[in-house]
Design a protein around this nucleic acid. Structure first.
Length: 157
DNA sequence: GCCAACGTTGGC
DNA sequence: GCCAACGTTGGC
């Protein structure tokens, strides 16, 4: 049985459509320890709700699937990358990525305002004030509630 | 563009 | 190990 997660992205940088356009994507650039630790807990087959931030309105837009468990984020070693971390070494990497693949676009996106009203989400870090975590766990109830709001069915393999 | 929330850094 | 300063996130 999969676990459920939510990951944020700024669609101007990398959108769900960008994810759909390729077979898989490296979820690079996470530079928050708590978010990183959640990624390290992910397993192949886990389902990830993709959330667009910094747009009007912010909200959930699609479902992705973890296709490769956590490994060191290559961008931390690349001085040319905006995600470069001079304190990271090959022996002691700081940051991790997972690979994800688009699974299904929501029939309609679900705005943050709607998510805040969903009882199943009331305990989620997503809707708490001042939440800045870009990777966070979702309960199965929360995940299913969002799919219901979006009137989206997803095949459970 | 503003600003509240919150994570990180670094002096002590 | 504390905490002030600073930087970033992200909704509005």
């Amino acid at each position: 049985m999969p676990n459920y997660w939510l990951m944020k992205t700024e669609p101007d940088e990398f959108s769900f459509a960008d994810l759909e356009a390729r077979a898989r994507a490296v979820w690079e650039g996470v530079r928050n320890y708590q978010a990183r630790n959640f990624m390290r807990e992910m397993a192949v087959g886990d389902l990830v709700l993709i959330y667009h931030s910094q747009v009007k309105p912010p909200g959930a837009v699609g479902v992705a699937e973890v296709v490769e468990e956590a490994y060191p984020d290559p961008t931390q070693f690349d001085p040319e990358s905006s995600y470069y971390d001079p304190k990271a070494t090959a022996e002691e990497p700081r940051w991790s990525v997972v690979d994800v693949a688009a699974r299904q676009r929501l029939t309609r996106s679900v705005s943050l305002a709607e998510l805040k009203q969903a009882p199943a989400l009331s305990d989620s870090r997503l809707v708490r004030q001042g939440n800045r975590l870009s990777v966070l766990p979702l309960s199965e109830d929360a995940f299913r509630a969002i799919l219901t709001i979006a009137e989206t069915d997803i095949d459970v393999a």
